[in-house]
């Protein structure tokens, strides 16, 4: 049974022009011990998926799904208490914008210690527990590469640089020893050495503890080293998903193809100074979504049939949604 199983997740948000499907039939599966990359252009809805999974979306948005379950338990219909327990013990999340996800009026130490669940503490008296909490917090900070913990535990988020806040977010996500870590762009804006350090830490946790990771990132190179599987998102639709090496070697969807082509480090045979292949145009805004396949206006292979939303098809474990995939020649 997959750890996290999402089938046809649709999220409608309210705008001035009525309800818009910001996510349209997104499917995503994650097995235990798997590292799945979630990639897509900026604005394709990656963060919305993350927020839908953890339930951090405004109450009045409409969320529907054929299936959205954690270890077989349905997340949507379950009681808020049960869902909270799962969020407390099993799933941890690093939101994209670390500074906004930290309470500006509470010290970082306070917030980090708050993420340590009670069941990790074994001491009896409350002052012993407080001391133990602090110990665990310091250990966590060392893990994510913060050495001067005493300097930062008392500090407030506004007083610290972004990357420290980011590391605090990572530390507090790891505090509960979760089974699944959802990391939304965790290394954005970090300098290379810290980035490598964080990626190494995550890889190690995956290898040693079997931590599953849903890794959202723009950094294709980092992802390809780390992830086993990948889901590609475009405009709130999952366009292709499958094993990492499969998608790299032989993408079936025109969008994935373009994405891979656009990353120079991905192509070993790239002759020097050759122009980068890109798609024409830019990602449409939510207010101007094309009907049918949302890639339509930008797709080099688009035909008349593309005004209908393509069904998801599969070849073994490789899913794609396209009427004219790359392995089929155009008429």
């Amino acid at each position: 049974m997959p750890l996290l199983d999402i089938k046809n997740l649709t999220l409608e948000i309210e705008s001035t022009q009525g309800w818009i499907k910001a996510l349209d039939k997104v499917s995503l599966q994650l097995e235990g011990g798997e590292v799945r990359a979630l990639v897509g252009e900026s604005g394709s809805g990656k963060s919305l998926i993350v927020k839908s999974i953890v339930g951090a979306i405004p109450e009045h948005w409409r969320i529907t799904a054929d299936r959205m379950s954690w270890k077989g338990q349905d997340l949507i219909s379950m009681s808020s208490d049960a869902r909270r327990r799962i969020m407390r013990e099993d799933i941890a999340v690093i939101f994209q914008n670390p500074v906004n996800s930290l309470d500006p009026s509470a010290s970082l130490g306070e917030q980090l210690m708050e993420s340590i669940p009670d069941h990790l503490l074994d001491k009896g008296w409350f002052w012993q527990r407080a001391a133990q909490r602090k110990q665990i917090a310091v250990k966590l900070l060392h893990k994510v590469g913060i050495k001067e913990h005493s300097k930062y535990l008392q500090a407030y988020p506004s007083a610290l640089p972004d990357d420290i806040c980011q590391k605090f977010m990572i530390a507090s996500a790891l505090a509960a020893s979760p089974k699944l870590l959802i990391a939304d762009d965790p290394t954005r804006g970090m300098e290379v050495t810290t980035k490598v350090q964080i990626l190494k830490l995550l890889t190690r946790l995956n290898k040693i503890r079997g931590l599953s990771i849903l890794f959202v990132s723009h950094d294709l190179l980092a992802i390809s080293n780390m992830a086993n599987t990948m889901t590609v998102l475009y405009c709130g639709q999952t366009v292709e998903s499958g094993k990492m090496h499969q998608l790299r070697r032989r993408p079936l969807h025109p969008y994935t193809h373009a994405l891979m082509e656009s990353a120079p480090s991905f192509r070993k045979d790239l002759p020097p100074k050759s122009p980068l292949a890109t798609l024409d145009g830019t990602i449409p805004t939510l207010q101007h979504l094309p009907i049918g396949c949302r890639l339509g206006p930008r797709c080099p292979r688009a035909q008349r049939e593309c005004v209908k939303v393509p069904e998801e098809r599969r070849i073994h474990n490789h899913f794609y949604s396209c009427h004219f995939p790359l392995h089929r020649s155009l008429k």
């Binding site: 953890v54 799962i86 969020m87 407390r88 309470d103 509470a106």
Partner: peptide, 23 residues
């Protein structure tokens, strides 16, 4: 976002309000 993040950390509504909203 930090209130949503506090919920996502698995805190109950009471805890979120007392620890993060009031102040």
């Amino acid at each position: 976002e930090y209130v949503q993040a506090a919920y996502a950390r698995g805190l109950s509504k009471h805890q979120v309000i007392l620890r993060h909203v009031v102040r």
